[in-house]
C-alpha cells in the first residue's frame, strides 16, 4: 500500500520529550480521523517506546531519538530509534514484568503495552549499536 504522508523528527533523549513525542504522533495521525480510543492507544505505545529509549537505550544520558511516522489510508507506522546500548536478549525483554531496572521501579510492562495497544510490533536491536522499534496501528477495520 502506498503511503499518503510521512514525517521524520529527531529530539534529545530527555524525559520532557516523552509528552512531546506522543502529542506530535497523535497530531500527525489525526488527519486520518481515528477514534479517541485508537489515538489514546497510539499515544501510550509511543510514550513507552520513547521512555525505553531514554531509560534503557541511553541509560538517562544525553542522546538523540529518531522518530518517523508513515501514514497509509487506514493505518499508521511509527518507527522509534536510538543509538544507545541495545538490548541483550530481545525475547527476555518482551516477557511481561521483566525489567533490567527494578531499582527505578520500572514495571517491565513497556513491550507488553506496545504489543497490546498496537496491531504489530517489531524490535531490532544490536548490543552497543542501538534499538529500532517499528509499530503499526490500524484505525479502520473491515
Amino acid at each position: 500500500m502506498q503511503p499518503i504522508n510521512r514525517m521524520k523528527i529527531e529530539f534529545d533523549s530527555k524525559s520532557t520529550n516523552e509528552a512531546f513525542a506522543r502529542v506530535v504522533v497523535a497530531a500527525f495521525a489525526a488527519q486520518l480521523d481515528p477514534t479517541l480510543e485508537d489515538l489514546a492507544d497510539l499515544k501510550t505505545a509511543v510514550s513507552e517506546a520513547v521512555t525505553n529509549a531514554i531509560i534503557h537505550g541511553y541509560e538517562q544520558k544525553p542522546g538523540t531519538i529518531y522518530m518517523e511516522c508513515i501514514l497509509y489510508p487506514n493505518s499508521i507506522k511509527v518507527i522509534i530509534e536510538d543509538h544507545g546500548v541495545g538490548i541483550e536478549d530481545i525475547e527476555k525483554a518482551r516477557t511481561p514484568a521483566f525489567t533490567t531496572k527494578p531499582e527505578l521501579e520500572r514495571s517491565g510492562m513497556g513491550f507488553s503495552v506496545m504489543e497490546s495497544f498496537m496491531d504489530s510490533l517489531q524490535i531490532e536491536s544490536e548490543k552497543g549499536k542501538g534499538t529500532k522499534i517499528t509499530m503499526t496501528k490500524k484505525f479502520f477495520r473491515d
Binding site: E105, S107, M109, G110
Partner: peptide, 13 residues
C-alpha cells in the same frame, strides 16, 4: 488524562 507503564511502576511501588 494519560498514563503509561511508568504509572504502573509508581502504583506497584
Amino acid at each position: 488524562t494519560f498514563m503509561d507503564s511508568s504509572g504502573i511502576g509508581l502504583i506497584v511501588g
